[in-house]
C-alpha cells in the first residue's frame, strides 16, 4: 500500500510486525479450516475426481470439445440477450426519461393565452399522464425481474403474440432495466444546476431542445459509470433465462449436468466465467469514471461533488468504484 487512508496512521515497525504475524496466523488458520471444512468433505465425496472435472479441464478428454462447444453456444446466447437488452433498455430508458421530464415541465405550465377551460383541461391531462408514467415506473421498478420475465413469457402468448424465447427474455429485461435507466438519467438531469436549463431557455430553446441538446448529454456523461454498472446487472440477469427455457449459459450447463452428472464442477466453471466478465466490466466502469472526473472541467460539467474524499485512495487501490 503506497497510498494511505485517512482513517488510521501509517503503521509503525511494531504495528507492521504484529500485522505480519497476525496475518500469517490467520492465513494458516484459514487454510487449515478450508482443508477440513471444504477440501476433506468434497474429496471424500469424490468431487475432485478427474471423472467429474475431466470434460471441463482436460483437453484430451473425449467430451472436452463437445462440452466447451456447448458452453460457447450458451455464452454466445447470454451475450446476445444481454447486448440486445442493454441497447433496447438504453433507447427506451432515454425516451422514458425525456418523457417524464417533459411531462413534469408541462404540468407546471399554465397554458396562458388559451381559453380557461381548455387550459385547465390541458393541465389536467398532463398531470394525469405524468401520474400514469410515474405509476408505471414504480410498478416495474418494484417487481422482481424474474416475475417480469415470467409474466412476459406467459402473458404475451395469452394475448396471441408469440416470439422466440430470446425475445421474451429481452423484453422482460428491457421492461425492468429501461425503467431503472430512465430513473438514473432523470436524476442525472435533475441534478444539473438550474442555470443550465435557464440559460437554454434564455437563448430561446424549446423545452424539448433543452432536454435534447443541454440536459441529456450532460446527464449521460455523469451517469456513464452507473450505466455501465447496469450492464453488469443485465448480464447477470440473463441467467434468469433458464426459467423460460432460453438456452443461455446456465441452461446449457443444466443440460451438460444432465449428461455428465457433475453439477458442482460445471457451476464452478460458469461462476468463474461470469466473475471474470463482470469484473472486467466494473473495471471499465471505474476507468470511465476516473477519466470523466479527470476530464475537462468546464463550468458546464458539474462533476457531482468530487468523489467523496475520505477513502478515495483506498477505493482505487482495492478496485471497486463507489
Amino acid at each position: 500500500m503506497s497510498q494511505q487512508s485517512v482513517l488510521y496512521d501509517v503503521p509503525g515497525p511494531r504495528q507492521r510486525r504484529l500485522t505480519l504475524i497476525g496475518s500469517a496466523v490467520a492465513t494458516v488458520l484459514l487454510l487449515v479450516g478450508a482443508y477440513f471444512l471444504i477440501y476433506r468433505p468434497l474429496n471424500d465425496k469424490g468431487q475432485f475426481s478427474m471423472e467429474l472435472w475431466g470434460p471441463l479441464v482436460d483437453p484430451s478428454n473425449e467430451n472436452f470439445s463437445l462440452v466447451w462447444d456447448r458452453i460457447g453456444t450458451g455464452f454466445q446466447n447470454t451475450l446476445t440477450a444481454a447486448a440486445l437488452a442493454i441497447v433496447s433498455s438504453l433507447v427506451v430508458g432515454t425516451l422514458l426519461a425525456v418523457l417524464r421530464i417533459q411531462l413534469k415541465s408541462l404540468t407546471r405550465r399554465r397554458f396562458t393565452g388559451l381559453a380557461t377551460p381548455l387550459s385547465y383541461l390541458l393541465r389536467g391531462l398532463s398531470t394525469l399522464l405524468s401520474a400514469v408514467t410515474r405509476v408505471c415506473v414504480e410498478v416495474f421498478r418494484g417487481l422482481p425481474v424474474v416475475i417480469t420475465i415470467f409474466f412476459v413469457a406467459r402473458g404475451f402468448p395469452e394475448f396471441g403474440v408469440s416470439f422466440d424465447t430470446l425475445w421474451y427474455l429481452v423484453i422482460g429485461l428491457t421492461i425492468y432495466n429501461s425503467v431503472v435507466i430512465a430513473e438514473i438519467l432523470r436524476s442525472g438531469m435533475e441534478g444539473l444546476p438550474g442555470g443550465q436549463a435557464e440559460a437554454a431557455a434564455a437563448i430561446g430553446l424549446s423545452p424539448l431542445q433543452t432536454t435534447r441538446m443541454i440536459l441529456l448529454p450532460q446527464a449521460f456523461r455523469i451517469m456513464l459509470p452507473a450505466l455501465i454498472s447496469q450492464l453488469v446487472v443485465v448480464l447477470k440477469d440473463t441467467s434468469l433465462g433458464f426459467i423460460i427455457s432460453y438456452e443461455e449459459t446456465l441452461n446449457i450447463g443444466k443440460q451438460i449436468i444432465g449428461v455428465l452428472d457433475n453439477p458442482i464442477q460445471v457451476y464452478v466453471v460458469i461462476a468463474v466465467m461470469f466473475i471474470v466478465v463482470n469484473y472486467a466490466l466494473s473495471k471499465l466502469a471505474q476507468y470511465v469514471q476516473r477519466r470523466l472526473s479527470r476530464g475537462r472541467k468546464t463550468a458546464g460539467t458539474p462533476a457531482q461533488d468530487p468523489p467523496p474524499a475520505a477513502l478515495m485512495s483506498q477505493s482505487e487501490s482495492t478496485g471497486q468504484g463507489i
Binding site: D69, Q255, I256, V259, L260
Partner: peptide
C-alpha cells in the same frame, strides 16, 4: 424435454 434421461435429453452434441 431436454432434461429427461431416456426420453428426451439434450446430449453433448446439442
Amino acid at each position: 424435454k431436454f432434461d429427461q434421461p431416456g426420453f428426451g435429453q439434450k446430449g453433448l452434441s446439442g
